[in-house]
């Protein structure tokens, strides 16, 4: 909650300032209503949105982004035992965001993400292991999965952008946006199979999650977005 206050405080400064400076410029009679579709490349994945300009200074958009990427296995050595660690980056989600357009293409965005944030690591022994006289393959031993999940899947979002998500005088426009959504906290979950199955009830992970909840930045996900929009309905004049 504290970090949201910081962000709101920080973002209110330009909003108020811009609102004051733009009050004289925004009194024209243009029809800003329009509908646009957009394609985005973001730190939250690739995706698209559909945006509607409701008022001259207000757009709303609904979008979906997805990022899922399995990385090459990495070797991990712990006290002489070799493991393979395979990270998978998995994030994205649905978003519903309102943009308040300020002067000169600057806008403030606020809304929420229904996030699918879920990066994970799969850890397996790199070598067979001999227990007593019986040798187990890594598959026999099973795997340990460590996933980072959101405390809240519905995460409030604020951002600041340049450009617009709905072109005003053209069919196409571009935008650049930087922001963050707040999932409450990161929650580490562990699970495993075979020899690692007991990690679903790992007390030290419970303690770790308590610690994470106490960190102001825990649960924040930064979003840097570059988008292009096409206005397919509405005036371009």
């Amino acid at each position: 909650m504290k970090k949201i206050k910081y962000l709101v405080f920080a973002l209110l400064i330009p909003v108020i300032s811009m609102a004051q400076t733009s009050s004289g410029e925004s009194g024209g009679s243009r029809n800003y209503f329009g509908i646009a579709v957009g394609a985005n490349a973001t730190t939250n994945g690739l995706g698209g949105d559909i945006a509607v300009s409701l008022l001259k200074w207000l757009d709303v958009r609904v979008g979906y982004e997805k990022l899922e990427m399995s990385m090459s296995p990495m070797n991990l050595s712990l006290s002489g035992q070799d493991f393979t660690l395979t990270p998978t980056i998995r994030t994205g989600g649905w978003s519903a965001i309102a943009d308040i357009n300020l002067l000169g293409g600057l806008y403030v965005a606020g809304g929420a993400y229904l996030t699918s944030f879920n990066p994970s690591f799969k850890i397996m022994s790199a070598n067979p292991m001999t227990i007593g006289a019986i040798t187990y393959t890594p598959n026999d031993m099973g795997e340990l999965d460590l996933a980072i999940k959101p405390q809240n899947k519905l995460a409030p979002y604020v951002g600041l952008g340049f450009g617009t998500n709905i072109p005003r005088n053209h069919r196409f426009s571009m935008n650049f946006e930087i922001g963050a959504y707040n999932m409450g906290s990161y929650v580490v979950e562990t699970s495993g199979t075979n020899l690692f199955a007991g990690n679903s009830d790992n007390e030290s992970i419970t303690q770790l999650n308590k610690m994470l909840k106490g960190f102001s930045w825990s649960g924040m996900y930064p979003v840097i977005k570059l988008g292009i929009s096409y206005k397919f309905f509405g005036s371009t004049k």
Binding site: I131, I134, Y136, D140, L144, G192, N194, L195, F196, A197, G198, N199, D201, N202, E203, S204, I205, Q207, L208, M211
Partner: peptide, 14 residues
């Protein structure tokens, strides 16, 4: 925490 308190739970073969 990772150094001092993080533990791994291991089962035994079934």
């Amino acid at each position: 925490f990772a150094t001092d308190s993080l533990k791994i739970v291991l089962g035994t073969p079934e």
